[in-house]
Design a protein around this nucleic acid. Sequence first.
RNA 1: GGCGCUAUCGUCUAGGGGUUAGGACGGAAGAUUCUCAAUCUUCAAACCCGGGUUCGAUUCCCGGUAGCGCUACCA
Length: 492
Amino acid sequence: MNDPKPSAGLPARANGPRVRFAPSPTGFLHVGSARTFIFNWLFARRNRGTMILRLDDTDVERNTEASVNSIFEGLRWLGLGWDEEYKQSERLGLHRQMAEAIFQKGLAYRDFTPARSGESEQSGAQGTWLFNPGMRELSHEESDRRAAAGEPFALRYRVPRNSGREVRFVDAVYGAQAKLADDIEDFALLRSDGMPTYHLASCADDADLRISHIIRGQDHLTNTFKHILIFEAAGATPPQFAHLPLLVAPDGSKLSKRRHGPVVSVTTYRDAGFLPEAFVNFLCLLGWSPKDNREKMSREELVEAFSLEGINRANAVVNFKEEDPFDPKAVWLNAEHIRGLTVEDLSERLLPIVRGAGFDVDASKMLKVTPLIRERIKLLRDVLTAADFFFVGQLPPYDPAELIPQKGDAAMALKVLKHARDVLSQTEFQHPVLEEALRAAAQDLGIKTGQMFQPIRVAVCGRKNAPPLFETLEVLGRDTSLARIEKALQKP
RNA sequence: GGCGCUAUCGUCUAGGGGUUAGGACGGAAGAUUCUCAAUCUUCAAACCCGGGUUCGAUUCCCGGUAGCGCUACCA
């Protein structure tokens, strides 16, 4: 059921770049992860490369099936697809092989120190735990003996000490990077239960899958030095790296479910009525720019314009508020994309939402309502508040005072509605005809058109702000319109 | 603490040794209009600080500050 979907865009070339999105299934699909996926996908499509989805599920403790489902659900909604799919937990043999090879070369050592219990870390307030000489310098004999005796151990990379060695790489976004090996700790390759760590598994798979470009969050920028060391120890050529600035909350902190709630989950945007293409567009503009002032861009335009050079280096704020959970620009872009949809397309997307809310509406009715609200909704779900009166038999109660027109009184409202009833009962319910008839009616009564239309609008829609009156009447039809006017006549 | 990264309007960003520092969202005002929306016009709004280099720095260099990241047998 989780089959990779065929990707859109140019077909991949056999010798094109290979990129991967490698989420760890420990939660729902995060907006930051979605953006990373999108940038990888864009890069792959732009360069006729291959997009790979790899579940980095080596943390048995925290992985959940629900999370795997949530990630697929989110990715499916984005509708971008991928070409190959792997699960890290099914490749453990490969990881252990690489660990063993590194160990055989003497570039890693067994660490018999018992694992630190979760909380009690933060030990060396004075300095970093770079390495433990006792374990690092353990003799082969003793190391073998203790291992043979079944004592558990973690396998650690033997990072060069006092060698003056600098580990370097060139990041496509952040430029030349260098770090003294002395500042890199002896990180773990294998846990004492034999499971590979993220660093090992990730590098082993990247090498094995012939990943050419690693495009991922900037939180991995400093980890990359360790990865270079691993690739080197395994005799593999490191891929190219491109780190992405992070998405952060308005206060600059990183987005977290606990602190910021559902706005960090992709499904929240889907459920609120974002168009996937608008959401993708929005995310692209966070930390990347086409540099030509374009904002609204289609998928094709994004693919065409995308390049690593356009990626920015500073973190980007997702500008949400407590009262206003979505970034205003995301909402605006969504409205922009909605307006760009054909009536048929929009109507089809609206229908399930309207039905889901309990309204009994058929496709042809929806198709007639859609053009009246297309420019009035920002999120798909807005259809429920913008067009509800089209879908109900009876209007919910409203304040009769609303029927009174500007600079008018209850008597005028009454006069207008009575006249409207008479006119509408013998007018063809068709937009231009209705307009002509009602304008004439206003003239008859010697009032302004606004004063004429407003009471009718409220009587028929139950509110002051609504789509244009004549189109609305046409869609509503004579029976419903007259019944509602009749009902309004009982009110004041 | 150590190491690394970053710094242009409130937010997303363009730019780059000499510019009226550009665009967009949001905000304000106005036009249009049967209300709302859409659309159009206008306005307010920014180069973190301090030193250099230079005839000239927002731009280049250094320092500071602030923010973020890594510093787990998480990823």
